[in-house]
Design a binder for these strands. Sequence first.
DNA 1: TAGATTGTTAATCGATTAACAATC
DNA 2: TAGATTGTTAATCGATTAACAATC
Lengths: 210, 210
Amino acid sequence: MKKQKVSSAVIRRLPRYYRHLNDLHLAGVERISSSALGKSMGLTASQIRQDLSCFGEFGQQGYGYNVESLRGEVSDILGMNRGHTAVILGAGNLGRALLENFHFQRSGVTLAAAFDVSPDIVGRTLSGVPVYHVDQLEPYLKESPASIGVLTVPRGVANAIAARLVAGGVKGIWNFTNIELRLDSTGVIIEDVHFADSLLSLSYMISEEP
Amino acid sequence: MKKQKVSSAVIRRLPRYYRHLNDLHLAGVERISSSALGKSMGLTASQIRQDLSCFGEFGQQGYGYNVESLRGEVSDILGMNRGHTAVILGAGNLGRALLENFHFQRSGVTLAAAFDVSPDIVGRTLSGVPVYHVDQLEPYLKESPASIGVLTVPRGVANAIAARLVAGGVKGIWNFTNIELRLDSTGVIIEDVHFADSLLSLSYMISEEP
DNA sequence: TAGATTGTTAATCGATTAACAATC
DNA sequence: TAGATTGTTAATCGATTAACAATC
């Protein structure tokens, strides 16, 4: 087990490893070599072995990797078994789509509550998740700490709500607003999902040749 | 103007440049140097000049860059003025959230139509966008070509619908399903938005220290 | 003119790939 | 045992940073 900083390129590949290993497991595959896994993922065998070696020695010479046990290792590495909990801030269209459709539990995260300001939904329960008024955020987090805040509020209040989440003790913010949060030096991790950036990259790639 | 392949690292930064330049413009800033822009974006001045030099010479010694004109250049590079059109496949929760909330036009893309199978919404118009039955996809695209297909259908039908989009002539697929589409050698670009991967990366990053 | 800042070339750094001894 | 495949070290490749002449 090495104890050097893991590069962000590796971190970005870990969820893909998990996804592929899970699919292989569901398909009944028991063992796989780095070269076979590489072929199916579009990576080199070298890269896979190099990546995994950041975290331990999971394979066996002459055999390869046991799919189920490697999947377990990767899920541990990803923190899927840490019992992370999340709260959603903003139950508008996008917040609700996530709440009702995205399977947090499949990533090992328990979605515990949602917060909004609209009287139409505050007090209701959506897909088993209670919706509270944003005023209740601080007392709620005091009682039920959460490690992740999902930010799906309007642009204008994003930074203010983010600051309250940080004060409330979350460790990470999953940011769906299209602004860049400024929370320097708080140690809180921000993971951005910038739809517009993604669409613009696609636009660039399909625009190249005439 | 160099004519060498632009690395994907640069492509990923282009939308951020656009976003920052747009904000600066809206804030009334007229000119900016690479070092000032770098400071505000968390990049080195060198990197910004290096990135921009892939596409042309947009600055002036001793002065820097004109914000408005550089914003225009970047929007051209990104293909925002190419008149791209998009269709959404799948008007369930996520598809509808995109349709009703995401401002395609701000990325220079016109959202022309949505397709679904549910009798509840086929035939309706949501946020000005007509919803047709998926059966109509082929005749629709023949009549009104689209460059981008937004894929928000259930996992099970994703590959089949993607293939139909490709056959219908789209140049890119904005993929929100959590599978990896296999469209090798069609030349169609796939841009993935994998929520689960993003959340798992965040989970990893907040799980490191005990 | 003097100061500022570019575009570009060279140097450095980091990530990917290749090679191979170890060993199941 | 022989074949397969690992983990790791070394080589290569690419991306970022630094330096600087050119020039507004």
